[in-house]
Design a binder for these strands. Structure first.
Lengths: 348, 348
DNA sequence: CTGTTAGCGCCTTCAG
DNA sequence: CTGAAGGCGCTAACAG
């Protein structure tokens, strides 16, 4: 009889897992034969394979991916997605796109959220690199990414998502923020509005800057005055946006239309308009579930596609593509519903 | 001079990473000393440590977590969260809670979405186990989880999230679905409504079943008739819910109030009511961004807390807690806004 | 305080 | 078709 004692000993109330050696012993073959039988596609006599597979099942054998990864070059079969906040539906959708793409390639997705704390970005990224992920997809929140220069030398593809990195060149995927905002504001102008205000988030955000530029493009194109009083950038939350909009409505010369810089701002703006019952038109960047219900016109885009695309770029690098940096700009789409004409008509 | 050639060779246009051996060589010490100096807390002469740290920095050394994990028991420093759909804001929030908890414990979070395909659950789970994650948090979607029995023997904590597992006992965290629904329907009844309908998702879902039971509890308590015509369970999407509600409104004896089984159903119901301008009261399970804006009364809960709690339970198991299974039921909270009285008054 | 040795679990040499 | 040895990068034992 072969000796079938596992590499026993108990840990945390659980029995130790079986290894290939255990399986081989039980099946009465060598370690390598067991290994071959277990990894499909290899040449093994059918009867031997069955014997091994039976032994594996009996021992509830599960190959150890850690050992396998170490063996094959010390590279993990996973991809990292580093993000500020999973709670924002926009990023959750991007993550979902990444998830689909990595799953298709047989890779595991490691998601790490830095809770929107810029200072936690670098430690998080470093931790992923220590895990030897194959690629790093990053929604940047730190102010400076020069620290990534040192990491890239070792061949790990890094793709910036939604915003470019600062102080270091990299592949990236962003939306056409400026063009989208321009189209949105033009639509408001074409609906007959003349005093169009802008309610966005914090001033230092790349996306915000681009959208503001698009807003100004449109004013210029239509020969409308660019009144600085009408530009508000009070922060990320819907509350600050609501307050900002409320104050704009209290101006002696209030706006007759508003462009909201993102989904958060849109909600705040909507609340303010609703509270005051003001007949002010609105249009916002970012599509969201409520927008269609409330008839809010928006500049829409495809967050899942953004995630998918970012993963694709990383995979191309893994597959050996050298060439220039890829800077993908994803299109936006203007969805005209009702609110760009007059909100009050549609909010009833 | 010490030989400082790295274990060179190029891969994918990237230089090979330095290993502890490389660092040791450059610092002129033994491998173990380098290892000690690099892992904090170990006893090394200060000057030696500096030398090693300098060498590490010069070589841009990053410890290989794969090798470390293999060495220390073959267990990864990560936790898996297996989920159907990241895109649903509810699950995204649960994931966020898990993320916070794992980060606090210095563990990495591996999120794997099975795209709501029941058949993909088991392969996904097995893949996580092969990665030797320390714990498995699972939002179950398969019909049968007896396959998990075999895995648990090896000491990996498994916690069911939002729904219990079928055919196998496990730790779990769920909401008080029945109690919450009961309270919600009672509120509708107390607002004077007599024909209260129920629009939920698919009949086979645990959460749905519990909420339906709570609905019936309330009808019984208030002595209202339980008319099967008023119970609809047409699927997960907001579209099916909208159609169902629409048909209910067309009844010769239509309902005067509706309890929506979840956030998706709530949106569909809201659309239907809005389209017909019907003066019907509503209240729904699940709080959501729009609900507060639209004045929809809801049975609210805390998804992030659910994620956090699930992780905590797993950690307690890792820390050696044996005892009974933990079956945590998280409370719900009734948020009465306007819609439970009469929707039309608040939708203006 | 520091160095040597061995081995985590797997798989790729190279022989038979 | 099968077997035996070696090593991926790191750290736990045991020396010195």
């Amino acid at each position: 009889m072969t000796d079938v004692t596992l590499n026993a000993s108990k840990t945390r109330g659980g029995t130790q897992r079986a290894t290939v050696a255990d399986v081989a012993r039980l099946a009465g073959v060598s370690v390598k034969t067991a290994s071959r039988a277990l990894s499909n596609g290899e040449l093994v006599k059918a009867s031997t394979r069955t014997k091994v597979l039976d032994a594996a099942k009996a021992l509830r054998f599960r190959p150890n991916a850690i050992a396998r990864d170490l063996r094959s070059g010390g590279v993990a079969s996973s991809v990292a997605f580093v993000i500020g906040d999973l709670t924002n539906p926009f990023y959750a959708q991007v993550a979902s796109g990444v998830s689909t793409a990595t799953a298709e390639r047989g890779l595991t997705l490691v998601i790490s959220a830095s809770d929107d704390q810029a200072a936690r970005e670098q430690p998080t990224v470093v931790s992923m690199i220590e895990r030897r992920v194959q690629a790093l997809l990053l929604v940047p929140i730190a102010e400076d990414h020069s620290y990534l220069e040192g990491e890239r030398q070792f061949g790990i593809p890094i793709v910036a998502v939604d915003r470019p990195l600062t102080n270091v060149a990299s592949d990236s995927v962003v939306f056409d923020n400026r063009g989208g905002a321009r189209a949105g504001v033009l639509a408001l102008a074409d609906a007959g509005h003349r005093r169009i205000c802008f309610v966005g988030s914090s001033a230092h955000l790349y996306t915000h800057g681009e959208r503001l530029a698009g807003y100004r493009d449109a004013l210029l194109i239509r020969g409308l005055q660019d009144d600085p009083v009408l530009v508000r950038q009070d922060g990320e939350s819907t509350d600050t946006a609501e307050r900002a909009m409320s104050e704009l409505l209290d101006l002696s010369d209030p706006p007759d239309a508003v462009f909201a810089g993102n989904n958060r701002a849109a909600l705040g703006v909507y609340r303010a308009l609703r509270a005051k019952g003001s007949p002010v038109a609105m249009l916002s960047f970012d599509d969201f579930e409520l927008a269609s219900i409330l008839g809010i016109s928006v500049v829409a885009h495809d967050p899942r596609e953004m995630g998918r695309m970012a993963a694709q770029i990383a995979f191309r690098r893994l597959d050996g593509l050298e060439g220039h940096l890829e800077q993908v700009v994803l299109p936006t789409e203007l969805l005209l519903r009702e609110s760009h004409r007059l909100l009050s008509e549609s909010a009833g």
